[in-house]
Design a protein around this nucleic acid. Structure first.
Lengths: 154, 154
DNA sequence: TACTGATAGTCAGCATACTGAACAATATCC
DNA sequence: GGATATTGTTCAGTATGCTGACTATCAGTA
C-alpha cells in the first residue's frame, strides 16, 4: 500500500505549506504584514514598472483572476498603484510606490532568512540539487496549469 | 537581482500548483470529482478505520480547522461517515463507506498517472532524488507549520 | 465600416489553508 | 472533589487559487 508520503503531489503540498509558514513567520517577526504572493507581485512590479496585470500574472505564474485581489491588497496597503493605461483602455498599468520600495528594502533580510530556514535540513549541495530538480520538473509541467509562467514581451 | 524563480519558496508554490492541476485533470478525465486533499483524507480514513479528526489531520498534515470542511464534503458526497465517539464525546469517528471504497479503487490508476505526469521532465533517478530531498527538507521543517505531520497513537 | 475573434479585467462561486476564538468534554493536579 | 489545563471540534474572517461567465475594448478582415 502506497503511503501518501511517497507521492510527489503530497510532498509538494507539504513543502509549500512549510515554505509559506516560514515566510510569514520571518516577515512577521520583522514587523511586516506581507504574504509570499504579495511579496513576489510587489518585487515584480518594481522590476517592471508600468506593466499590466496579465503580464505580471505571467511573470510569476499566477492566475489572472487571482492577481486582481492580490493587487487590491497591495494598493489598499499603499504599496502599489493601479492606473488606467492610455495605450489600451482595457489595461491597468501598475507602479510601486515609495512606501512599497521602502517596504521591499527593509523586508529583504527576512525574506532571505526564510529561504534559508525552509532548506535547513539540506546541505548546500542538496539545496542546489533540489532547486535544480524542481526547476526542471516545473519547466516540463509549465503548460499543465491554468497559470503558466510567461516571459515578458519585448 | 535575485529572481523569484531562484527562491525555493516560489518553486514550491509552482510545483504544487502544477501537481494539483495534473491531479484534477487526470481524475476528472477518469470521471471523478475529487481533489488531492479529499483523496488523501479518504485513503487515510480507509487505512485507519474509526480514527478521529485530529488524528486524521496529523497523519496527512492538514490543519484541524481545514479538515472539518474536507470531511463535510466527503460526507456530502457519500464517501465517508462521521459518527460520535462513545469513548470521548468530544470526538467524531470517521469511516469510509462502500461507495468511498469503490471510488478509491476505481480512481487509483488516474492518481498514479498524475504522479507520473507531474514528474515527466525528470528521469527515474532524478525523480527519486527529488522525492528524497523533499522528504528531507520537509522532515527538518515539520514543526514549522501549524499542521505538522503526526504519527498515529498506539 | 461592420463583423468577428481575441484580449484585459472583474466577478460569483467553490475549495484549500490559516488565525484566533469559542464551546463542550476530558484529564490533571492540589 | 474541585479548580485548572488540555483536547476535539467548530466557526468567523482573511488570503490564495481555480472554473466559468461577463463586460469593455482592441485588432483584423471582409
Amino acid at each position: 500500500m502506497k503511503d501518501n508520503n511517497d507521492m510527489p503531489g503530497h510532498l509538494a503540498r507539504r513543502f509549500q505549506q512549510i515554505a509559506v509558514a516560514v515566510f510569514l513567520a520571518e516577515v512577521g517577526d520583522a514587523g511586516f504584514d506581507l504574504t509570499p504572493v504579495q511579496y513576489a507581485a510587489l518585487a515584480t512590479i518594481k522590476a517592471n514598472p508600468g506593466l499590466d496585470q496579465v503580464t505580471l500574472a505571467g511573470l510569476i505564474a499566477y492566475d489572472r483572476t487571482t492577481i486582481t485581489g492580490v493587487i487590491d491588497r497591495l494598493v489598499q496597503k499603499g504599496l502599489a498603484e493601479r492606473r488606467a493605461s492610455r495605450r489600451d483602455r482595457r489595461a491597468r498599468e501598475l507602479e510601486i510606490t515609495d512606501e512599497g520600495r521602502r517596504t521591499l528594502r527593509k523586508i529583504t533580510p527576512a525574506v532571505e532568512s526564510a529561504q534559508r530556514i525552509m532548506l535547513r535540513g539540506l546541505s548546500a549541495k542538496e539545496s542546489e540539487d533540489l532547486m535544480r530538480l524542481l526547476h526542471k520538473a516545473i519547466a516540463a509541467g509549465n503548460e499543465l496549469s491554468r497559470a503558466p509562467l510567461r516571459e515578458a514581451q519585448a
